[in-house]
Amino acid sequence: MPDTTTSSPISTTTSAVTAADLLADEMHDVTVTVNGVARSARVPARRLLSDFLRHDLRLTGTHVGCEHGVCGACTVLVDGSPTRACLMFAVQAQRHEITTVEGLGSTPETMNHVQRAFAECHGLQCGFCTPGFVTTITAYLEDHDDPTEDEARELISGNLCRCTGYQNIIKSVLRAAEIKREEITRDEGGRA
C-alpha cells in the first residue's frame, strides 16, 4: 500500500502566524557604522546582516555562499574581528563598526596590501569567495607581520574556495605581509 502523506508541518486549519513570526517581522531602526560611515535603515528583526549590507546598503561586495556559516564568503569585520555576516542579524550590529571589502579599498588605486597581493599572485578566479578571504587575511595581518606558509594555510582554512585550490591564496597571504612590511619601512623611512 502506498503511503499518502502531507508534506507541510503546518496545519491548514490554524492561522499559521505565530508570535515568533510577529517578532521576526517587527521593524527596527538600525544604525550601524559601515566603513566608517553611520548608515541607517528600517529593517525587520530577522533581517540578516549579510542581506542588510547587500540589499539595504547595496554593498554587494559581501557575498553569500551558504547562509549557514560554513563557507566564509560573507565574512566582514565587526569591530575589526572577522565575523560571518550570514550568522548575525542587522539589529545585532547596532553600535558596532563594520568593515566590508569595499572599506578596505573600493577602487583599483586604493586597494589595500591584501587586495594588491591577490591581484599579483592570481589569488582569485571567479572572485566570489574572495571578499571573505580578503577581510579575514587583512584582520590577521594586523597583528602578524610575517606569517610562515603553514600559518598562512591555517589562517585561510576556515574559508571555502572552489576555484583556486588555495595555493595562490597562500602565496597572496605571504605577499600581502611583505607589501605591508615594505609600506611600514617606507613610512618610517619617510619620517626619519
Binding site: 561586495g61 586597494m111 587586495q115 591581484a119 574572495t130
Partner: peptide, 22 residues
C-alpha cells in the same frame, strides 16, 4: 599577465546575479 578583471572583483565591484535587481 596579471588579470585585468581582478581589481574590480577585489574591491567589491563584481556584479553577480544576486547583486542585481534590489
Amino acid at each position: 599577465v596579471q588579470r585585468r578583471e581582478d581589481p574590480r572583483l577585489l574591491t567589491g565591484g563584481g556584479r553577480y546575479l544576486d547583486d542585481l535587481g534590489h
